[in-house]
């Protein structure tokens, strides 16, 4: 198996509050790992540690064999290959959709404006938003914004995509369109780590589902077994509330 991310004894605390408690796991190429669990369980903190938006208190994270927790590692180089999608989209409101998508490829990957725009058009076409390319983010619906945010990340050709509750800020009728794009990605063998409350998505798309509780991977299994035979009291309790 091709290890993309190796996480070793990852700990994170905010002051006295221990949020991640010695998490050790590997994420392989092609994995779709869904993280579920109660709020405050450490899902988002774990995800945000993977591209060092949260700096771990202790422990190691290796991305493609590079220790990204080493201060000598150039984190910008690593982040180029790790896409991230946020709950609140975080599109740049002062730039058009096209500019949102091409800013980083032009400045970081050194594509020409034309190359970047061609690529952006192709991706926008795929998510059905090509006619929005010259508008500003404020003119889009939540679902459209999140689809743009996903393809904006894809512009960098990432090796892994991190999703931090990508549908939690959406109106219910817009959840589907975003999940569809993510399903497409999974079909194309994109490695994905997804923090989500969409159990249906986890069951259908993931190959691993993990229950994060009290800062630990309290239970992890394939989606089938995860939902059918949850071998953990707190998980049973959690599932009974959300399913």
């Amino acid at each position: 198996m091709d290890k993309l991310l190796e996480i070793k004894e990852l700990c994170k605390s905010f002051g006295d509050h221990l949020v991640l408690d010695k998490i050790t796991t590997d994420i392989n190429k092609g994995d779709v790992l869904c993280l579920v669990g109660p709020s405050g369980g450490g899902k988002s903190t774990f995800l945000r540690s993977l591209n060092l938006l949260e700096v771990p208190t202790s422990g190691k994270i290796y991305f493609e064999r590079t220790d990204i927790t080493d201060p000598k590692t150039n984190i910008d180089e690593v982040r180029k290959k790790i896409g991230m999608v946020f709950q609140h989209f975080n599109l740049f409101p002062h730039l058009t959709i096209m500019e949102n998508m091409t800013l980083s490829p032009i400045n970081v990957l050194k594509l020409t404006k034309e190359e970047a725009e061609n690529k952006a058009k192709e991706l926008l076409n795929r998510v059905g938003l090509i006619d929005k390319k010259d508008t500003y983010p404020n003119m889009l619906s939540g679902g459209q914004k999140q689809r743009v945010a996903i393809v904006r990340s894809l512009m960098m050709n990432p090796d892994v995509m991190l999703f931090d509750e990508p549908t939690s800020a959406l109106d219910p009728e817009m959840v589907g369109e975003v999940l569809d794009v993510m399903k497409e990605l999974a079909k194309e063998k994109m490695t994905m780590v997804v923090v989500t409350h969409e159990m249906g998505f986890a069951r259908e798309v993931a190959n691993r589902v993990a229950f994060l509780d009290q800062g630990q991977f309290a239970y992890e299994n394939s989606p089938d077994k995860f939902f059918k035979e949850p071998n953990n009291e707190r998980l049973k309790n959690f599932l009974s509330k959300v399913l």
């Binding site: 938006l53 790790i82 991230m84 980083s104 970081v108």
Partner: peptide, 15 residues
């Protein structure tokens, strides 16, 4: 400016 803007920029590999 919302902290998310900085995070989005950095996560796209911008310095």
């Amino acid at each position: 400016i919302d902290q998310g803007q900085m995070e989005a920029g950095r996560s796209l590999g911008l310095s």
